[in-house]
Design a protein around this nucleic acid. Structure first.
Lengths: 204, 204
DNA sequence: AGTCTTCTGTACCGACTAGTACACAAACCC
DNA sequence: GGGTTTGTGTACTAGTCGGTACAGAAGACT
């Protein structure tokens, strides 16, 4: 079944660049300038590759963006999945929003969130990308809602609570924090936003 | 001092278009597609003007955007100023966020908020516009903070409350709601987000 | 009438956009 | 060595970007 054993013998001339490293650089650029704000020339320069190599390795601009987005989800944005494993709904919110405050202001990375600011509004030609980001945002909101539903069943959230509403609220706060991060809010300021949410969190 | 009395006698060939109407159309376009996502060709078509007329009447693209932005602040976004006049901090939040839910989903207008999605992240060439929007966002956050400070002095917010933190939180929720609106959230869904905020609002 | 002033329409500018054709280089196989 | 396969570098495409030159049209003033 599996055709490739281990490194798989390279055929033909080998790549002169590290594809992983190049993708990381592309991700940073998209993260910083958004999908439309990043040009192929920006990318080739930052990735240290010329255009034909880029197209051969990653496909067109949209393909490359989607690959960068996937990498983002598995890397910088993995704190979301971790947060969902917290034992209580309140713990989930705390892990999620405090984690977000840290991720959104990580000095190693561009400010803010790729999924929020990658293509919030854009030319009609970029609509597929915009739509993809919409789906991703809906995706984590749904995951949070599901987790809250479980919390309700466990008596960990009041029976009167609406899981979907709370999840939408938490997602909105996260997205707002992302906007704030790109506007220059500090890590402490974002953590205090998270704290306000926790202070008002519904208890049994 | 005032040189212009009333309509001011027009000199030379009169305009063949209504500048107010044209600006309204430009605003709608920027609102929908963002600053970078809107091309001058899009604009001239939607405004029913050809390029030289547009440039003569409104200056370059950035000038036009700033004029549209001003109009936005005085028109669709004026609910913010009104909200600040509510008698209590809680009332301010309610008026602000419920008003936002309505404005962000007004079927007459594009979804979301121009100040949030007009140029959240963009090419370096559009940085002045991005920065202008950052300032506007900081502007209303500060206005809310000031209002909360007054509320504290009036005993309308607990003495332990931090006005700046609460204002940042409320602004973040608003910005998150704007993101949600562009993602297709309904008016009711956004109102329920506002309700969650009110449910958790600190009381004396 | 003529003149002055302003706006309109066409046709254009150079710069940049995403994407590619093609010749050549570098690895593998036999 | 030759042959095959794949990546690199240059140089180019057609189309779009924001912005403008210029000729003529439409009004007011004298």
């Amino acid at each position: 079944m599996a055709t490739s054993r281990t490194p798989a013998p390279p055929l033909g001339r080998p790549r002169a660049f590290d594809a992983e490293e190049a993708l990381t650089r592309a991700l940073r650029l998209f993260w910083q300038k958004g999908y439309e704000g990043t040009s192929m020339a920006d990318l080739t320069e930052a990735m240290g590759i010329n255009k034909p190599s880029l197209y051969a390795a990653f496909g067109n601009k949209e393909d490359l963006f989607r690959k960068a987005l996937e990498r983002y989800g598995e890397g910088s944005a993995c704190f979301i999945g971790e947060a969902l494993t917290a034992p209580t709904a309140r713990g989930v919110v705390e892990k999620f929003l405090v984690g977000a405050a840290e991720q959104l202001t990580n000095p190693e990375n561009p400010r803010g969130c790729l999924v929020v600011q990658g293509a919030l509004s854009c030319a009609t030609s970029s609509d597929p990308v915009r739509q993809e980001l919409v789906e991703r945002r809906k995706g984590y909101e749904k995951a949070i809602a599901k987790r809250f539903q479980k919390a309700k069943a466990e008596g960990d959230l009041p029976a009167s609570a609406n899981a979907a509403d709370l999840a939408r609220y938490v997602a909105a706060v996260h997205q707002g924090m992302a906007v704030q991060a790109t506007s220059g809010a500090t890590r402490q300021e974002l953590k205090r936003v998270a704290q306000v949410v926790l202070d008002g969190w519904p208890s049994k």
